[in-house]
Computed example of a mutant assay.
Amino acid sequence: MMEDTKSDFTMIFRQLSEVPAQQLHNRNFTQMWALEDLSSHKLFSDWLNKYLLRLSRQQNNSDLDRQHRMKNVNPRYVLRNWMAESSISKAEMNDFSEVELLYHILSFPFVTQETAEGAGYAARPPLWAKRLKVSCSS
């Protein structure tokens, strides 16, 4: 489903770790862009029902425990092409502020950080990023 919808794999897993089970039951993904993208797939409803059934069968496991465990293995921030491009462009003009910001944020990728949220590092990529072409040597 993620491949078919060209969903962001990293953010799907992170948003699954952040969403309470009740919100999954309600199918409320308005603040979760990656899950919202995935929910457009024709098989999403079937998958979600199976996932919720699995969660309900996990006794001795609260929803908060599940979220905590998942957040510890699913990063909120990863280096994206558009982030690298933006920081490189600034660095070429002798402004290393974004390089330093990325270094700090990516040092703690599992922790939600106000500065990272403000910079949009967990948001949908900006429209200009669609034109980026990156090679293996980048």
Rank of each mutant, 00 (worst) to 15 (best):
L52A: 06
H41C: 06
S138Q: 03
L35W: 07
K133R: 07
V73Q: 12
E117L: 03
S137C: 05
S17G: 15
D95E: 07
P125F: 00
R66L: 13
P126E: 05
A123M: 06
V78I: 13
N74K: 04
E92T: 08
H25T: 09
G120I: 01
V134S: 02
R57P: 05
F110K: 03
S89P: 04
E117W: 00
Q15D: 01
E3L: 12
V134H: 00
L43P: 02
L101H: 06
S45A: 13
T5A: 07
L64T: 13
L64V: 14
V19Y: 01
R124V: 06
W33I: 05
V99K: 02
R80F: 02
M2Y: 02
L64R: 14
S39R: 04
F9V: 11
A116Y: 00
S86Q: 15
K42G: 09
T5C: 04
N49S: 15
Q113T: 00
V99T: 10
L55E: 14
S107Q: 08
R14F: 01
F110N: 04
S107L: 03
Q113V: 00
L106N: 01
A123N: 07
E98D: 14
L106Y: 00
L102P: 02
R27F: 06
R66Q: 13
S86C: 12
A119C: 05
G118F: 02
W47A: 13
D95I: 02
Q31Y: 09
A84K: 10
F29Y: 15
S87N: 04
L35I: 05
S86H: 14
K71S: 15
R69W: 13
G120A: 01
K71R: 15
R57C: 14
L24P: 05
L24Q: 05
S56N: 13
S86E: 14
L52P: 09
L106F: 00
I105Q: 00
K90E: 10
K71P: 04
V73N: 09
W33H: 10
Y77G: 06
N61S: 13
R27T: 08
I105T: 00
F29I: 05
S62G: 14
F9M: 07
M32N: 09
W128M: 06
P20Q: 03
E85V: 08
L64Q: 14
E3K: 06
Q23G: 01
Y77K: 00
A122R: 00
Q59C: 09
R14G: 01
M2A: 10
P109A: 03
N61D: 12
R131M: 08
S17L: 02
M11N: 03
M11Y: 02
L53T: 12
W128Y: 09
S138I: 01
